[in-house]
Simulated assay, not measured.
Amino acid sequence: MNKINIPENPYLLLTPGPLTTTPTVKSAMLRDWCTWDDDYKLIVEKIRSDLTRLAGTGPGFTAVLMQGSGTFSVEACLTTAVPDNGILLVLANGAYGRRISQIAQKQSIQHIIHDSGDLEPPDLELLEKTLGSNPDITHVAVVHCETTTGMLNPIEAIGNIVKKFGKIFIVDAMSSFGGVPINMNQLDIDYLISSANKCIQGVPGFGFVIARTSVLGKTAGNAKSLSLDLFDQWQTMEKGKGKWRFTSPTHVVRAFARALEELDLEGGVEERFKRYDQNNRYLISQMKEMGFTPLLAEEFQSPVITAFLNPKHPDFDFKKFYNSLKRKGFVIYPGKVTEMDTFRIGNIGDIYLKDMERLVGAIRSSQYWS
């Protein structure tokens, strides 16, 4: 068999995922796997074990893998976790928090939304007041890292209030898990949702839910979908020791297993967080020096992705700016804030300080930045 060379990336993906992966993660997909074979199921079971370990949990928690993008796992979690007589409170301050509300609406889940706009964290006083005056609320959901803006929401403070009133706490940690330390035990999180192609640095194809088994175990029959039934997926994985109900993305799963190994080799979540944070701090300092203004106050900024206001310059054109950077080897993200014109630059993936230095040099030489 001829040796396959992994081609170099024509550009770095400075996005919140899919993101730039290592050659070794990509090469892990070159072998075919059988979904029923014990060798493959052992890989799945190790992934499940590794995920609960990364979440700071021990016995009493489980990880359930789900085909599709991260949103599939969000929908699977919500539609399985919240029963017909349940009421979901959604804390939103960006597109992904609002997407939780959209899912609830589509699936006829009773829900209330607290939308604090794009630039403010959830209102904790309002949360406490609402839970105190609405005892029928059963679940509270929030996005940890809202990549609409790059805001990192205060899940510890939110969780303290949620547990004070005895509610089920759901955290969409899509763009933070694996890159920002999260301990589900300490934060009293019942469901944590993320995806293969974010901070763990795998490739797209599946998401996962890490759940408290005593809570998930009460959800049989809740799901409004066959393929997105989180309880049934969990039961099949438990009884089949790594078996999925329907065809699993085998190549993506193997790449994710390699990505988990590389996370450990880097020193774990704490060390990866340091790298992302270094990327982020350097980028912000240099962008400010060039006259760019970050959208968020420093206290709200995550190390995952940073939004910048478009320069108030008559010659600035985002598409030209984007294409100029792409020709130099960098792909950035358009803005997603309705109130203001912004663009976003991600700091996660197989990206290091030297890459951010090259990016800054490319921006400095662009005629469209000032």
Rank of each mutant, 00 (worst) to 15 (best):
D232T: 13
A220I: 04
I193R: 12
R212Q: 10
P204D: 09
K224C: 08
G240Q: 04
N185R: 15
R212M: 03
Q201K: 11
S195G: 09
T219F: 02
Q235F: 14
T213Y: 02
D232G: 10
V215N: 00
K239N: 13
T236F: 01
K239C: 07
N197I: 04
W234E: 00
G221Q: 07
N185Q: 15
V209G: 02
I210C: 02
V215G: 03
I189T: 01
T219N: 06
L192H: 09
K218N: 10
Q235R: 15
Y191C: 12
G202M: 09
L192F: 14
C199W: 04
N222Y: 13
F206Y: 01
N222S: 08
W234T: 01
G221M: 12
Y191W: 13
V203L: 12
L226D: 10
T213C: 01
K198M: 07
G207D: 03
V209D: 05
Q186V: 08
K224D: 01
S227R: 15
L216T: 05
T236E: 09
L228W: 11
V203Q: 14
D190L: 15
C199M: 13
K218M: 14
D232N: 14
I193Q: 03
Q235T: 07
N197A: 14
G217K: 07
S214T: 09
T219W: 06
L226F: 15
D188P: 00
F206W: 07
C199S: 13
Q186N: 15
L226W: 13
G240L: 04
G217W: 09
Q233C: 08
N222H: 15
D229C: 13
P204L: 11
S214V: 11
S225L: 07
T236D: 00
A196C: 13
Q235C: 09
G207E: 05
Q201A: 14
N197K: 11
Y191K: 08
V215Q: 01
V209Y: 06
Q201V: 12
D229P: 02
A223V: 01
R212C: 04
S194D: 07
G205D: 04
N197E: 05
S214H: 09
K198E: 03
D188K: 10
Q233Y: 12
Q186A: 15
I210S: 08
F208L: 12
F208I: 02
K218F: 02
D232R: 15
P204E: 11
R212S: 04
T219A: 08
G202S: 12
S214P: 00
K198L: 05
Q235M: 14
S225R: 10
V203S: 10
I193C: 05
L228P: 01
A211L: 04
K224N: 11
F208T: 03
K198D: 03
L187G: 00
V209W: 11
N197T: 02
L216Y: 08
C199K: 07
K198I: 07
S225E: 07
L216R: 12
D188I: 00
S194G: 04
T236Y: 05
G217P: 00
F208Q: 08
Y191R: 12
T219E: 00
S194F: 06
G202L: 10
G205A: 03
C199E: 07
I193Y: 05
L230D: 06
W234Q: 04
K218G: 01
I193P: 01
N222E: 06
